[in-house]
Computed example of a mutant assay.
Amino acid sequence: MEQRYLAVVTDLARRLLDAGDPYWVAVEIHGESAQVMTDVDVAASIYLIWAELTDWVELRPGEQEQAFAGMRRAAQEWLALDPGDRDGLGRYLDRWVHNECGYSR
């Protein structure tokens, strides 16, 4: 199940980079993550990241362009990962959840 989920997130990250309005693709990543959080360990962290990025658009509409840039950066960095590299994936998730999105440790 985890491999299928990671492949879906990767596909959505690619779509997000090509989207004129990345918000709706970000919502899809968030939703896919919500559906598998109890079965896939990394999904909870991915859910938090995309919750923060979509909330940024929703709660601070004056910062939409910055939020879109953050979404694109998160997607680009995701696509640079090797999902099979557990350490690299862990570093990405830790940095995005705590340093980029500001969730406490």
Results as ranks from 00 to 15, higher is better:
residue 67 A to M: 07
residue 11 D to P: 02
residue 62 G to F: 05
residue 72 R to M: 08
residue 16 L to E: 04
residue 21 D to N: 11
residue 100 E to L: 00
residue 65 E to I: 01
residue 96 W to P: 05
residue 27 V to E: 03
residue 66 Q to C: 02
residue 37 M to Y: 08
residue 91 R to F: 01
residue 46 I to S: 03
residue 70 G to V: 00
residue 94 D to G: 02
residue 58 E to N: 15
residue 79 L to H: 07
residue 89 L to I: 05
residue 100 E to H: 00
residue 74 A to Y: 06
residue 88 G to P: 00
residue 77 E to P: 05
residue 97 V to I: 09
residue 96 W to G: 03
residue 35 Q to V: 12
residue 41 D to R: 15
residue 39 D to Y: 07
residue 59 L to T: 08
residue 21 D to R: 06
residue 48 L to T: 07
residue 37 M to P: 00
residue 79 L to V: 03
residue 40 V to F: 06
residue 75 A to L: 02
residue 93 L to H: 04
residue 78 W to H: 06
residue 56 W to N: 11
residue 71 M to W: 06
residue 17 L to Q: 09
residue 13 A to P: 01
residue 86 R to G: 02
residue 82 D to M: 04
residue 102 G to N: 04
residue 98 H to C: 08
residue 87 D to T: 04
residue 73 R to I: 05
residue 39 D to L: 15
residue 74 A to C: 10
residue 54 T to K: 14
residue 40 V to R: 03
residue 100 E to G: 00
residue 92 Y to H: 13
residue 82 D to H: 10
residue 39 D to E: 15
residue 24 W to C: 01
residue 45 S to E: 10
residue 11 D to L: 12
residue 8 V to Q: 14
residue 96 W to V: 09
residue 63 E to V: 11
residue 91 R to Q: 12
residue 27 V to A: 09
residue 7 A to P: 01
residue 61 P to N: 13
residue 30 H to Q: 15
residue 16 L to A: 10
residue 71 M to P: 04
residue 81 L to W: 10
residue 68 F to N: 12
residue 55 D to A: 12
residue 24 W to P: 05
residue 81 L to C: 08
residue 68 F to H: 12
residue 32 E to I: 00
residue 99 N to M: 00
residue 23 Y to L: 11
residue 13 A to H: 00
residue 26 A to W: 01
residue 37 M to D: 08
residue 74 A to H: 02
residue 54 T to R: 15
residue 25 V to T: 09
residue 101 C to Q: 11
residue 29 I to M: 10
residue 29 I to N: 03
residue 102 G to V: 11
residue 51 A to V: 05
residue 22 P to L: 03
residue 68 F to A: 09
residue 23 Y to C: 00
residue 18 D to E: 15
residue 23 Y to G: 01
residue 28 E to W: 12
residue 82 D to P: 02
residue 19 A to D: 06
residue 89 L to A: 04
residue 12 L to W: 02
residue 77 E to L: 09
residue 39 D to I: 10
residue 21 D to Q: 10
residue 20 G to Q: 12
residue 35 Q to L: 15
residue 59 L to W: 08
residue 45 S to R: 09
residue 25 V to A: 03
